[in-house]
């Protein structure tokens, strides 16, 4: 066995070793910055294309619902945003966990960057939901289980952001808010089911039901396209914001000064 010198990358002999080398390089802020810079245009254009296709499919191609008419079309924004708001929280907690355990700077950056985007998705979900609720339920807000859970998710995001910004030291802020995100992940299912349960006790005036027994394919395809578009949009935003965050955190290093002055 040849001993690998510090700073030298082992010669990749197998897939796993190559993968590990990739992860090790990914943990370096500079490599991450450059890789993210290359990925952003691809993700951005992918978002634009999928969004165009999804919106065309959702707004023109998909038939009107037999009960809700055209008003249901807001689900093409609402449902992907709701899914993303949960996905982003889990990703944030996962990144926080990685940052806590392996102390990888990039994981801290990703976790911090997730929070405002995830909060925006949660907010968008609530806004579109209440806009849909006005014609459908006759009111902007109902204490429905799902609405309430989503609102609490938004609060969890805001708490995370508040804690992260309240602590001066970046490293401490990242670790403290990661602990909070992990506590939140344990609590999200509990909160969700307790709110569900609460709702069945206090039966509301209306219960959310989807138009038919199952969603038609003409509606499902645009919905899936929009979901993918939202996912790509999220990753685009994540990388754009993470790059800025990396520059800010590494402001004292030589490569950042070179990058900034050369532009």
């Amino acid at each position: 066995m040849k001993r690998v010198q510090r700073g030298e990358v082992a010669i990749p002999t197998s897939i796993t070793r190559r993968l590990w080398a990739f992860f090790h390089r990914l943990a370096s802020p500079r490599y991450f910055y450059e890789l993210a810079g290359k990925l952003v245009p691809w993700l951005g254009w992918g978002t634009v294309l999928l969004l165009a296709a999804g919106l065309y499919g959702g707004l023109w191609f998909a038939p009107a619902d037999y009960q809700q008419g055209d008003a249901y079309r807001i689900i093409f924004i609402h449902v992907p945003a709701a899914w993303m708001s949960l996905f982003v929280y889990v990703l944030m907690a996962g990144a926080g966990f990685i940052g806590l355990v392996w102390r990888i700077k990039i994981a801290d950056v990703v976790a911090k960057t997730c929070a405002p985007i995830g909060a925006s998705f949660a907010f968008l979900t609530l806004c579109t939901g209440s806009l849909w609720g006005k014609p459908m339920w006759g009111t902007y807000w109902v204490w429905d289980a799902r609405l309430t859970s989503e609102l609490i998710l938004l609060f969890l995001y805001l708490g995370y952001i508040a804690l992260e910004s309240a602590i001066e030291d970046r490293r401490t802020a990242a670790r403290a808010s990661s602990v909070l995100a992990l506590v939140g992940v344990v609590n999200i299912p509990i909160i969700h089911y307790s709110v569900d349960w609460w709702h069945t006790l206090h039966q509301g005036p209306t219960v959310f039901k989807l138009g038919g027994p199952s969603i038609s394919l003409d509606m499902l395809v645009p919905l899936l396209l929009m979901t993918l578009a939202f996912k790509l949009f999220f990753f685009t935003m994540l990388l754009v914001r993470a790059r800025t965050e990396v520059l800010e955190r590494e402001a004292n290093s030589a490569w950042v000064r070179e990058t900034v002055t050369s532009q």
Binding site: I152, F155, L156, A162, L180, I191, S194, W197, W198
Partner: peptide, 12 residues
């Protein structure tokens, strides 16, 4: 801000 959302299940 941090704690009250986590208290919700207990309240319910």
């Amino acid at each position: 801000l941090l704690v009250l959302p986590l208290y919700i299940p207990v309240l319910i």
